[in-house]
Every structure is written in C-alpha cells, then in structure tokens.
C-alpha cells in the first residue's frame, strides 16, 4: 500500500469523523424549530450540543488542512471550482457560530427568535451545501487538463446533487434526533421519540432511491462494484447499522442506537469512497483529466511527515474527545453558564 493510498483512507476517516460528530449537531439545529416549543426547550437543545459543537466543527477544519496537505491538487481544484458555493459555506458557518454564541445573551424574544432561525437555517444550509458538493463530486465535474473547472452555482444545483443534499438533511436530522434522545427529557423527549422513527423511514426510502440512482447514473461507480465485489461490505455494513439503529430505538437503547447511526454514516461514506476509488474527482470532460489518489497526492516526504503527525496527534484527539463527551454525558440541565 502506498502512502497516498493510506492518506486516502485517513482522509475518509476524517470526513466520516466530521459527518458523525458535526452531523448530529447540525441535525439538532435543523430539528430545533420543529420539536422545541418554548424558549427553555430551545435552550435545552442548544445546550445539548453546547460544550461539544466547536470541537466537532474542528474536524471540518482538519479535513480542509489534511486535503490541502495530502492532496493539494484536489484542494486547489475543488475549492476554486466551487467558488460561490464555498463562499456560501463560509457565510452559513460564520452565521451559525455567532448565532449559537449570541442567541441567549439577551432576554428579548425577538432577539432570541431571530438567532434561533439563523441557527436552524444555517445548520440546514451547511448540510445542503455539503450534500450538493458531495453529489457533484460523485457525479463528476468539468475538469480540464490543468485540473481547472468553473462550475457556477447554477451548474452545481443539478437534480442528482440536490437528491444527495435532501438525503443528507434526512440523515443528519435522524442522527441529531437519536443524539437528542439521550440528552433531553419530558415532553420534548416524547416529541423526539415520536419523530425519530418517521425520520428513519424517510431516510431509508431516500437512501435506497439514491443508491439506485447512483448505480444507474454513474457507470464507473457501478463498474467498480462489479470489479471489486468485496467493497460491497461497506453498503452491507450500512444496512446492518440501519437495522440495528432501528431495533435499538424501538427498545429505547438510545446510546447504542446512536453508535449504530454513527457506524451507518461512516459506512455510507466508505461505500462512496470505495465506489470512486482510485478517482477522487471524476472529470466529466475526459476521464483522463480525473484527479486520482495517484496524480493528485503530495510527495512521499510530506505524506510521511503528516503520517507521523496523525500517529502522534490522533490518540490524544480521541482521548480528550471521549473525555469531554463522558464528562458532559447525561441529560441537559440549564445553569448560569448555559447558552
């Protein structure tokens, strides 16, 4: 296995880490206007993610940095090619951060309701934009021989990518709902408990349809699955995880349901990565212009240094991430320091 292949694997791990961790707090943001009826309930939902959302978002920053270093050509082509979409991602990321920080700083109802909407809509916006970006990557983009593309915002909003975005919204809402089942109580919990199975059903239908559409639409994707049948282990694992999550929700085992949901997200991303590999960004202009794990990777010196960083850093990251989640476990109680 070459260093660039190892880094492709690690990169997918980082993306999955982001989707699992920030996924549930984006989901909480999207669910908030639908399940929380009072200011206290909204605060409980916000404080369920209060101590951890920032650490979760760091995985996105890490993903950006790792892509820049390990696959600089992909980073440069993708970010410049999706210029306006990336600017909108920044817009919603900034709005969401300040909304979380600002909303409870004043008592005024109008103030709070304004920032609540900003928080929800920006959570929705991030999910949609990331979904659209992923959809376009799977679908292929108009890369030329220099790895340059110019896809306007309108070009990004094709039906397939929007379908990926809608599925992502359902997936993160479901994941957020399962997370909240561990964090809230009373009427709010009842509402969420009633909602989660419906979200799950909706997600299952959307996901199944999307898998079908992907296999029909992307010949290379389907071919990869025919050539390397063992990679079917990823979608199989995802299916198993969905069923486990369903079973654990029915038995009100929220923590294991949450773990199953996390495994489901990771395996779905694994399934996408395995279907694309070794291509990272397919070119719709000419397959020869596609950016692959081999032609877009950094040199071995850089990848080695980065691997050393990852080996030293990751255990610490996992250690204090686990520590913080353990410390803030259990149902939310509001106090003076809460958001």
């Amino acid at each position: 296995m070459s260093l660039s292949e190892i880094w492709f694997g690690l990169y997918i791990v980082i993306i999955a880490g982001y989707a699992i961790l920030d996924g549930f707090d984006l989901g909480v943001g999207m669910l908030s206007p639908f399940v929380a009826h009072t200011d206290t309930e909204r605060r409980i939902m916000l404080n369920a993610i209060g101590p951890v959302w920032d650490g979760n978002e760091v995985w996105l920053v890490l993903g950006g940095g790792a892509l820049f270093a390990a696959f600089p050509v992909v980073y440069a082509s993708l970010f410049s090619g999706f210029y306006l979409a990336m600017m909108l991602v920044l817009l919603v990321l900034i709005l969401r951060t300040v909304a979380i920080e600002f909303r409870s700083k004043r008592e005024s109802r109008r103030w709070r309701s304004f920032w609540d909407w900003v928080f929800s809509l920006s959570s929705f916006g991030i999910t949609v934009l990331l979904g659209v970006a992923l959809g376009n990557v799977i679908r292929g983009v108009a890369l030329d021989q220099n790895g340059v593309m110019d896809v306007g915002l309108a070009g990004l909003l094709n039906p397939y990518s929007l379908a990926v975005a809608v599925t992502a919204v359902a997936m993160f809402s479901l994941h957020g709902g399962i997370f909240l089942s561990q964090k809230v109580e009373g009427e709010l919990l009842e509402r969420i408990t009633a909602l989660v199975p419906r979200l799950m059903a909706a997600f299952f239908v959307l996901m199944t349809a999307l898998v079908g559409w992907t296999l029909v639409r992307s010949e290379a994707f389907a071919q990869n699955y025919r050539d390397r049948p063992w990679i079917a282990v990823f979608p199989a694992l995802a299916l198993l995880a969905v069923l486990t999550a369903w079973r654990q929700i029915r038995r009100a085992h929220h923590f294991t349901a949450f773990l199953a949901s996390a495994v489901m997200i990771a395996s779905l991303l694994g399934a996408v990565a395995a279907g694309l590999y070794p291509v990272m960004i397919p070119s719709s202009t000419d397959a020869a212009y596609s950016l692959t794990v081999h032609n877009a990777a950094a040199a071995d010196e850089t990848l080695t240094v980065m691997l050393v960083f990852a080996v030293i850093g990751m255990p610490f990251v996992l250690l204090y991430t686990a520590g913080v989640y353990y410390f803030f476990r259990g149902r939310v109680r509001l106090d003076d320091e809460s958001y």
């Binding site: 650490g55 950006g64 940095g65 790792a66 990251v317």
Partner: peptide
C-alpha cells in the same frame, strides 16, 4: 498558490488542525 505550496504550507495547516485546534476544541467546553 495552493497547488504550488500544498506539500509544505498545507502540512503546517494540517498540523495546526490536529495539534492546536483539536486541543482547543476539546477543552473549550470544559
């Protein structure tokens, strides 16, 4: 610029992410 310096500049940013931001993000809540 990114394509040109990714091997060098990018790895320093990635190091910032894993060693600095993760530490901040992990303990900020506490």
């Amino acid at each position: 610029y990114s394509r040109f310096v990714g091997n060098i500049f990018g790895s320093l940013l990635a190091a910032e992410g894993i060693f600095a931001f993760m530490l901040e993000g992990g303990f900020l809540g506490l």
